[in-house]
Design a protein around this nucleic acid. Sequence first.
DNA 1: GTACTGTTTTTTGTATACATCGTGTGTTCA
DNA 2: TGAACACACGATGTATACAAAAAACAGTAC
Lengths: 229, 229
Amino acid sequence: MKKADLYATLRARILDLSLAPGGALEETALCETYGVSRTPLRETLQRLAGEGFVTLAANRGAAVSSMDLPVIRSLMQTAPMIYAAIARLAAENTTPAGINVLKSTQRSFRKAVEQADAGQMAIHNHRFHEAIGEMAASPYLMPSLKRLLIDHTRMSQRFYNARTRAEQKTIRSACDQHDAMIDAFVQRAPAHAVALTLDHWALSRDGIERFVAPPPLPLDPTQEIKDAV
Amino acid sequence: MKKADLYATLRARILDLSLAPGGALEETALCETYGVSRTPLRETLQRLAGEGFVTLAANRGAAVSSMDLPVIRSLMQTAPMIYAAIARLAAENTTPAGINVLKSTQRSFRKAVEQADAGQMAIHNHRFHEAIGEMAASPYLMPSLKRLLIDHTRMSQRFYNARTRAEQKTIRSACDQHDAMIDAFVQRAPAHAVALTLDHWALSRDGIERFVAPPPLPLDPTQEIKDAV
DNA sequence: GTACTGTTTTTTGTATACATCGTGTGTTCA
DNA sequence: TGAACACACGATGTATACAAAAAACAGTAC
């Protein structure tokens, strides 16, 4: 496997949680798995560390970046401001190329929604919001956006694994919001883009909150069985 | 030289412009200069790339991150929002340890101002604002703050090399503002901290603007000499 | 039984040799 | 004379061997 593929693979596996947050990353093990020597692997880890995917400790190796409670709190606090700022800039800096990327990514996202493929949904949603960031062309906001998206995507894995009909409806709403956002960009309407972005965030935030604080177990755990009988 | 020192040295030399923005960084040359082999050097470059100090191109080596006009525009646009958000969070999350770091850094900064040492001023000012970011404890804003500080510090190099009395007075004002900001943190006054931060930014922004758009040459370049005679 | 210490083993950090890629220069042919 | 191709050189990318540090373990003393 080549270095670029290695980078993409590790990145994807961190985003879809198949590499668990906080999990240790041993160099020799990863080398065997992906068929590269330690030099390029270590350089890839350094790069991933710079982007916030992994955390390095001197003489103690790498670990997948963790997602503890203070971090989630911080995400809730920061995300709306950054997402809104990015949306405004993107609407002001619309480019035909950028719009095309958004449209094709959105097509892939919608397909994943129709096929109920959680992993693909997460990836294409991630890419969609990253593409908005690229169109915003703000080198100083991009690093924070990318950091946010890493953890936002990881937390959304559960969100996309929708069980109930209500949850599935929520996902379709989110998908429609993407289309509305593209429209706002095409019309170069910053205020509208910001408003839609905040709605979109509200939807996502509710999903995360339901994951962090799920509905409590029934007081009588046997109730369901009794009902069935 | 050890890897940690190498990182610190390269970082400092980029910040104080002794490594010019856009300048190429050849691996073998750097190895000779700092007495390390290519493996740790390359890993250091990867790390610096992740933090925005250098830019890597595949098969084409590293270069110090450039500072062109679009980037400066973007800095002007982004800095107030991020600095203000960080100031607010820092005021809300004040810690004794954080305050101590700020106070000791500010002492070093003031000393540099008194000694008119531009390089030290830039370094300690950088550290001061980084320490505010650490106290804000916001993993998602920190990356953007660090990106901003890199270019803000580099652009300020000229600012700190004050020629006129007016400029020197401006620097002393900036130094006093630091003390006022520390007070606002100690009193846990977020709104006040934000207001002071925006004043501080305005001062710095004027300095940068004077550097980007310096006063035009006198229409008659010989005027000064004539006056002197 | 527990705590401490010395040794073993595993894991990370570094140096060096080799492979590969990009670039510049020189030659050849139209 | 100009353009295009081939070769050589220099730089980056990769593999491997060795050094150093940390962790795991066993043994002994208390």
